[in-house]
Simulated assay, not measured.
Amino acid sequence: MKKSPKKYTPEVREKRVAHTNPPYPTPTSKPSLEVLVKNFTYKDFKKILDKGPFTIGEWADMLFISERTLHRYAKDNSSFNGLQIERILLLEQLIDTGNELFGKEGFKTWLQSAPFSLDSDRVKDKLTTHNGIQDVIDLLGRIQHGIPA
Rank of each mutant, 00 (worst) to 15 (best):
S4W: 14
P5F: 12
E11C: 06
R13C: 05
K15C: 05
V17T: 15
V17L: 13
A18E: 15
H19S: 10
T20I: 15
P23E: 08
Y24T: 13
T26F: 08
T26I: 10
P27I: 06
S29R: 03
L33I: 15
N39L: 12
I48P: 00
K51C: 05
K51I: 02
P53C: 05
F54G: 03
F54Y: 14
A60S: 12
D61P: 01
L63Q: 07
F64C: 03
I65V: 15
E67I: 11
R68W: 08
T69S: 09
H71L: 08
A74E: 15
A74V: 00
D76T: 14
S78Q: 09
S78L: 09
S78H: 08
S79T: 15
N81P: 02
L83E: 15
E86W: 11
L90K: 10
L91M: 15
L91E: 05
L91Q: 05
L91I: 13
Q93G: 09
T97L: 12
G98T: 03
L101T: 10
K104V: 09
E105Y: 04
K108F: 03
T109Q: 12
L111E: 08
Q112P: 03
A114H: 11
P115C: 05
S117G: 03
S117I: 11
L118Q: 02
R122Q: 14
R122S: 11
V123G: 08
V123K: 06
K124M: 13
D125T: 10
D125C: 01
T128L: 11
T129F: 12
N131V: 12
G132C: 06
L139G: 00
Q144L: 09
A149P: 02
A149F: 10
